[in-house]
Design a binder for these strands. Structure first.
Length: 106
DNA sequence: AACCTGACTTCGG
DNA sequence: TCCGAAGCCAGGT
């Protein structure tokens, strides 16, 4: 049985460990569609509420939050900092230190 | 069924 | 190194 891209994304995001982050591209890749990073963001946007996902642990490939100020950026940043993730002066996260790389798909 | 949109990524200038 | 344009996938209208 093959899960839908949507289900894969939800599943993977739920597995992101606390204190770690993932990029849209990484999630898309693990979900089976390396080029569907945009779709990942879309899924988070539409399902973060009902699925209770740690959407804030997902940032873009630059380690930055893609949201615009006022659209959730501050909230996300605060949540991440609360988990021990540090931001640089320009508001980016050091992917080498916080990127989720402990991948384990069932 | 066709077109539009987006919390992305990547390549070229 | 920075900015703009194109490519990509899936869901919504």
């Amino acid at each position: 049985m093959e899960k839908t891209f949507y289900q894969q994304v939800i599943y993977l995001i739920k597995k992101i460990p606390k204190g770690k982050i993932a990029t849209y591209g990484l999630i898309a890749r693990l979900a089976g569609s390396p080029r569907a990073a945009r779709q990942v963001s879309y899924i988070l946007h539409s399902s973060s509420g009902k699925e209770k996902l740690p959407w804030f642990r997902v940032v873009n490939s630059q380690g930055k939050i893609s949201l615009r100020s006022g659209a959730g950026l501050e909230t996300q940043k605060k949540l991440l900092e609360d988990e021990g993730i540090e931001f640089r002066e320009d508001g980016s996260i050091d992917l080498k230190l916080f990127l989720w790389k402990n991948i384990n798909i069932e």
